[in-house]
Design a protein around this nucleic acid. Structure first.
Lengths: 209, 209, 209, 209
DNA sequence: TATGAATGAGCGTTCATTCAT
DNA sequence: TATGAATGAACGCTCATTCAT
């Protein structure tokens, strides 16, 4: 059912309920973009969705579940978008450059939502105060890049460097594009993609000794 | 000590008051590190300082002033730390690599505070909802790096790239070290410094064509 | 009842909400009568209403709105009560004496609320420190009386005096009845009405020269 | 020393202490005039006096004592001012008209302080919520006027009216002049004195039947 | 005497959550 | 399903008062 449709909806929910959930998620993103995570209260989200506060509690176990869903679905959709492009590449260098390029494309095409997602990532904390999307999630993303780099080093395509540090730098630079879009929503993402692919192509290249 | 040093303490305050202010600022940083900015209430800060809530209001005009002080004093101290090293360099490349290295040193030596400072930067908002330390502050830092890069390009030390994108990538990579320290407080910052200077040395180098 | 009457209730609110608002307004008046404006906190009002503090914030935008509503609705209702009686009079003297009499009647019938209303008038201040119901409101009431007096002077019904000073004295004397009721809730308002109409009938009469 | 000087200061206090007390009282009046009773905190009063908050607590048992002193001393001084003029009159009518005239004079000469005094009278409450200067004080003033009126009625100088109601009206009208001064600090008090003496002369006169 | 420092209670307000309808 | 109503805790802040120095 779900698995072949690409849908991120939940099993066993009526269309009406599913539509409501989507409406609420959209309103939540709009609210966070506008007011920031800290002031994005359920009341504000409900107001923007044109519904009553209680509805949100009805459809989601709580504010936390709503936030979690927003982030996870954003990343799942991102993976769906990027994977085909990466699988078409044959070299590690090709995969890396395409990864950077398409990741920035995805950010550019979701420049509205990305602002909210970043805000949630940095602020959503569990009851004990620890970041809900802490280092595990972050490490996972870095590790995916590091793996590409390691493979390239083994194949002799890349030079000598710490793949984890390089991977972290790449991720940080990609995420920086989100921040740049926040500052200037009309920024040219293709320009960032060109510059960053060139930057990290040089940075990962074998020394021309 | 205070009066003749580069200390950021305020003139005209008694030693007792100054000590209390320092104690409160330290407690504020500890609290933010532990609970995050959003949950770092005056009550929590006071609890960690072992004082009553009202004391904070007595020594600071309000929570906002306290937060502002934390950030500004951190950056002022950072500039004090870095400037002498940069002025000792004669080439743009030297300045850039030293900038990266010493910035990471400063982060490493303040690995505790940096977590709180980052959190404040990303979350402290004015009454109108806009980030108090918004893009102006961020751009200022990027622009300082971009200026180094531009000079190097003019002198023929660096290759061809957009200095603003490169500068943003450098800043993002340096800030990434803070995040890495948050995940692993015992991380080897010198290793990060070596890897990142090498990375951006390659990335900014003239094409060997 | 509500919908077709001159009621001051708001349209578009459910009966439950309207009932709660009335209950809160009543509790607010009771609280102010008992403790005075300065100590009439939302907590005290809620306590007397037997509800939680938050309910007041739910039904009113804030304490200020609640206070404003109390005063405005009291005056609107007062005007509704008095106007028909004044319109039935044909002479300025008749209007004046009826104004005094019926105003005191209204006070007598609302002897409880009037205490709170007076307290609000004298103490409710805006954020800038100025009285919310300042001299403009007061002058309006005085001016209404002064206008009656001026007309009577023009028609030759009254003697020679400054209508603003006389009007102020009349208003002050009427308001004094409120204070008297505060001291002795069982005071005979009809007696005050008789004495004050006679007093100002003599005071405004043409000299019998 | 003190007892024959007419001073209202306290026995056994050094000149320094007495001067401090006067300074604090003056600052208190200024503060209440400017901010209103409710916002006239000890901190504000101390600020205007150029001293520390604790000094007030040192010289006065508490805020309440300070407020009490301000009011009582104002009335004592008022009696000092008025008595000689009243004792010079030989008829009840003369005493009444002089009372009104000189009372308004006193208000006019203390138009600054009177604003604060009125504010205290209306807002200073005891711990149980009751007005500290409640009906007893008010009644005392009214009763003084009523006594003049009764004597005049017994001597046949005045007509037939309830002396308490008439006395209340007179007091209310005099106090109204304070309010008028609050609205317009440059108001012509002599004009008010002329109009109100004439008004109550007519109102108390024997019917010319 | 006078001070600056500290306290602790109370303020108005916001908010995630619960629940009867 | 959806709603409006209510809760109760926490928030930043103010203040009269206390007290060691």
């Amino acid at each position: 059912m779900r698995s072949d449709s690409g849908s991120v909806g939940q099993e066993g929910l009526s269309f009406i309920a599913e539509a409501r959930r989507e409406q609420i998620k959209k309103a939540a993103i709009d609210t966070i973009v506008e007011l920031g995570y800290a002031k994005a209260s359920l009341a504000q989200i409900a107001k923007r969705a044109g519904i009553s506060k209680g509805v949100i509690s009805y459809h989601f176990a709580g504010k936390d579940e709503l936030m979690e869903k927003l982030v996870v679905e954003f990343y799942v959709a991102g993976a769906h978008f990027m994977l085909p492009h990466l699988e078409a590449e044959t070299t590690a260098r090709g995969v890396l450059l395409r990864y950077i390029e398409k990741n920035i494309s995805y950010i550019g095409e979701n420049r509205h939502a990305i602002v909210a997602i970043s805000d949630i990532l940095l602020n959503f904390r569990d009851a004990d105060g620890s970041l809900h999307f802490g280092h595990d999630g972050r490490n996972e993303l870095v590790e995916a890049v590091a793996q590409i780099l390691r493979e390239g080093q083994e194949k002799g395509e890349f030079g000598d460097f710490d793949p984890v540090v390089m991977g972290s730098s790449i991720r940080a630079s990609i995420d920086m594009v989100s921040a740049a879009l926040h500052a200037d929503p009309d920024a040219d993402t293709a320009h960032y993609a060109r510059e960053l692919t060139a930057l990290f192509d040089r940075a990962t290249r074998k020394d021309p000794s």
